[in-house]
Nucleic acid binder design. Sequence first.
DNA 1: ACAAAAGTGTTTTCATTACACCCATGG
DNA 2: CCATGGGTGTAATGAAAACACTTTTGT
Lengths: 222, 222
Amino acid sequence: MRRAPPVFVTCDVVVMTIRGRELNVLLIRRDRPPFRGRWALPGGFVEAGEGLQVTALRELREETGVGNLFVEQLYTFGDPGRDPRGRVVTVAYMALVAEGRLRPRPGSDARATAWFPVRRPPPLAFDHREILETALARLRAKLSYTTVGFQLLPERFTLSELQRVYEIILGKTLDKRNFRKKILSLGLLRPHQAEARGRHRPAQMYSFKVREIMIIDGLIRA
Amino acid sequence: MRRAPPVFVTCDVVVMTIRGRELNVLLIRRDRPPFRGRWALPGGFVEAGEGLQVTALRELREETGVGNLFVEQLYTFGDPGRDPRGRVVTVAYMALVAEGRLRPRPGSDARATAWFPVRRPPPLAFDHREILETALARLRAKLSYTTVGFQLLPERFTLSELQRVYEIILGKTLDKRNFRKKILSLGLLRPHQAEARGRHRPAQMYSFKVREIMIIDGLIRA
DNA sequence: ACAAAAGTGTTTTCATTACACCCATGG
DNA sequence: CCATGGGTGTAATGAAAACACTTTTGT
């Protein structure tokens, strides 16, 4: 390793969920410099002998009490000067969780955690704003040709809820009949008993036959 | 940076081109341990104050004499144990070059460089086989919804040449008339004088109006 | 009875597919 | 004159888009 300067490597995670009518991102408040008091993506340094994805999941659990998520590698950020402490390369990951499944609470680090709308986040530490934009662009792209959007829903859900996920992320309304026709024709859903939701007509419930992300030719056009 | 173990970061590049009827990848022969004598992707350690993409391009030039390519970040590999020398995280990049535009020759490092078919590469050092597979999968995917394939052609080319690019990477034949109809309908090409190619009827030449990669809704179905 | 969300089919439009022959050139 | 790749159009099929009203429930 002649000549090779050591570098610090971190893994940060962009955790997103839907709350109400908006896509939100999970942030933690930094309790030490640099950027003390600013909000930042959860994440931290890779430990000796620890895989990158393992780091991402560990930091997420330590800082926010969230475990057991499906994370996907997003992009790696390594411009010199992006961290005032020195050369830091960050491997960013992305994760989605079902609405309400996750109540942010201080993890073992006891730092403040909170959800923020992705379209108007608070000022962020480091280049985390850029990381967030990258995640959002990637999510929108993947939504239209994979089943990632499914992760934003609980085990059982209605077709209207699924449609809302697509509408919020793509930022446009979709035709109800065409949406239902398309989704049902894929044969990915298992129907269940209808359930009363609120003070309206009960809705047919569905679950996904498989939990894995699948690539679908032309799912929903962006 | 308490607790944070330093890590070594490298950038490797998967350079691909079409030669004859096959997609090829550029490899260099390692002249020192580990994996001395084995073929490997060009790449090397990030230097102090050097951006990741800059590293990729510098190593490529030093090791193969190739400059001025368009590279795109592919994926980051960081499993512990993937490099026997220690903890090494590799940010992999991907690049495409036009057939024949690049004659591999020893760079300043004076190592052997050569093209190999991507479907049957020689035994590779480290986890470079996995990196190569990742690049191939990504290229195939991107080919069907972006204009990346264009980079595998010279400034001026025929529609048959463009079609051959798609056929080789997708691994299936395409209908000539439908292909031409589709491509021309996109309005991305500028026609030029026909040129005699070989001992056949001269072919209409085209160039791309823009060199940048564009996302096209349904370009060519994989 | 009304407010709120669930549910349901048909027609039009457009893109994709399948398919076969003549043309121009060099040797 | 022949081998080789260049070039062209139409009909059938299937997917996506546009579009409005009835149903069920809680209050």
